[in-house]
Design a protein around this nucleic acid. Sequence first.
DNA 1: TTTGAGCGTCATCAGGTGGTAACAACGGAG
DNA 2: CTCCGTTGTTACCACCTGATGACGCTCAAA
Lengths: 219, 219
Amino acid sequence: MIEDDAAILFGLRDNLQRAGYEVRSAGDGHQGLELARTLRPHLVLLDLMLPGLSGHEVCRRIRVDGLEMPVVMLTALGEEAQVVRGLNLGADDYVTKPFGIGELMARIAALLRRHRRVIPDVVTIGSLEVDRGARRVSREGVEIELTPKEYGLLEFFTRKSGRALTREQILDAVWGDSAAVTDRSVDRAVTTLRSKIEENPNRPSLIQTVPQVGYRFEG
Amino acid sequence: MIEDDAAILFGLRDNLQRAGYEVRSAGDGHQGLELARTLRPHLVLLDLMLPGLSGHEVCRRIRVDGLEMPVVMLTALGEEAQVVRGLNLGADDYVTKPFGIGELMARIAALLRRHRRVIPDVVTIGSLEVDRGARRVSREGVEIELTPKEYGLLEFFTRKSGRALTREQILDAVWGDSAAVTDRSVDRAVTTLRSKIEENPNRPSLIQTVPQVGYRFEG
DNA sequence: TTTGAGCGTCATCAGGTGGTAACAACGGAG
DNA sequence: CTCCGTTGTTACCACCTGATGACGCTCAAA
């Protein structure tokens, strides 16, 4: 992602990471081009109004270098002539601000789908790997079989990692408001989950108990 | 080009031909789908508001059939949710009317620039071979006869291999929004498909059950 | 009109899943 | 040190889910 506006950068990065993408960013054209050359990312998000090298120039040089990843231009310049110019320079899509985050994500997914890349959805915590796309968990390549509830709980934890969660929050999120279950069910689910994913279930390192409150997942 | 509004059809066709493209057109969804199947064009321009089959349905069926040409959706429906839905159905771009002819041409050019490559039509998973061009499946040279629904399901699985798919996703993709069928029908179809393509149907290795969710195809 | 293939639904069954209860362990307060 | 509230653990069993055989509807070909 090559973008100099910090607000947009952070907002987008958040969304992309939540969707499972790994994001690297640069704040100006030269850095951005360098990053694209060395990192060879699966896709480039490119702001056009940049200090240093202009976005158009970055895109042109990316293509001159023979880099073939999709490039999505991101800009406030919405006039047709601008769009045409951007696309003719080798961009694959051209999205004008203000844009809907959902649309941008869908366009990114569409481009990656074309390029035969798996759209990533894998979270890694230490040696533990949670593949949200495949709904699978593994440690060092060995699959860990989880029941649906255990998986749902773990998935929720990965999305809220680092935060202390009350049993009520966990119930709402994993069991849903329909379910009439006890707090104790959370305890039990946590216990069985620990027994499967913790290296040492007696001394849990991934799922910490927060007394009087609930649990915290260390990610 | 699948478009029922004659004014737009003629206007666009003119422009496209002047730019050197060969254009064939259909005025409703069924004809359009048939044309795409037989002609195998390099790109499909698809209006969403169509008599007969809706544009969404046409796009879905194009993908179900394993046709991989770029699809550009063309519509007056500009809401973000619509755009996201279209792209998720397998469209490559989504342009809202009124659009600038120059921008549309640039977007078409960008897609064709990318898509010159030939796409492999045969997918191999273990000893199983799925020939999407011929719509045929075989194991070690021996053809496996599949009914249309079974083949559609398998084809969908090969395109989403490795991902956990909900029954709803499978229904949407394979049965289509028109069909009013139960989740259980997915189960049934999976069972019969397993009985034909699995080495050991009782211990499926290709199609895994993902409890509470649906199925996952191991590719 | 008959026949058969394809496919959706139903009923049944086996096995897995998860909630609860009961008890153990733990830890903080006094 | 004791008490008590909270958390961890185990056992049990009701319930749900998915697999599958059976059935019937629809449609197209003979």
